[in-house]
């Protein structure tokens, strides 16, 4: 239980700090901390695979993508027409939208906690561990796994083709 409160506090605090930052890069870094705390919660829920995936996909891939975008846009400070001393959250647009979302979330939370858990439309889920996933992936789903490599190859060829610099301009038609 101590661990739960530790991770939960970490997740809540870092999430709050994400939206309290002025510098988007700090926000992104704090979001990684929040994701790390969430994956700790997953481990406590005995879902180690989800925990690892959370780290690899969210904290790893997606946050790196975010960082790249933030740095490419070259916006260490939020450009704004408002007075810089007004905190971003206190500006009219984000304030209204954020308040609406917060109310919605609070209502949902109360509703979910107060009502009894509904009967699931899905059947009982099989026990999912890293071992079973790994075994299925390399036996039953070996072929789809290989096809995924083909998919990644196509994506790479496409990305290189779209992004590479023109080395022989003038050879192309002008249209």
């Amino acid at each position: 239980m101590t661990l739960f409160y530790l991770f939960a506090a970490l997740a809540v605090v870092s999430s709050l700090l994400v939206i309290a930052q002025r510098n988007p890069i700090y926000s992104v870094l704090l979001l990684i901390a929040s994701f790390g705390a969430l994956s700790g919660l997953y481990v406590l829920l005995e879902a180690p695979f989800a925990a690892v995936i959370q780290i690899i996909v969210y904290a790893g891939a997606i946050m790196v993508l975010f960082l790249f975008v933030v740095m490419l846009l070259n916006a260490p400070q939020e450009d704004t027409e408002y007075d810089v001393r007004v905190h971003p959250l206190m500006r009219p647009g984000p304030l209204k939208f954020g308040a609406a979302l917060a109310v919605l979330l609070a209502v949902e939370l109360v509703w979910a906690l107060s009502s009894a858990p509904p009967a699931s439309a899905f059947g009982p889920l099989p026990e999912i561990t890293v071992t079973t996933i790994g075994r299925t992936l390399f036996t039953t789903y070996a072929f789809p796994f290989e096809v995924t490599s083909l998919l990644i190859l196509v994506a790479m060829v496409g990305a290189v083709l779209m992004a590479r610099r023109e080395e022989h301009s003038g050879e192309r038609g002008k249209r």
Partner: peptide, 8 residues
């Protein structure tokens, strides 16, 4: 696979 190739 086919969609990605065709997008490009």
């Amino acid at each position: 696979v086919l969609s990605l190739a065709v997008y490009v």
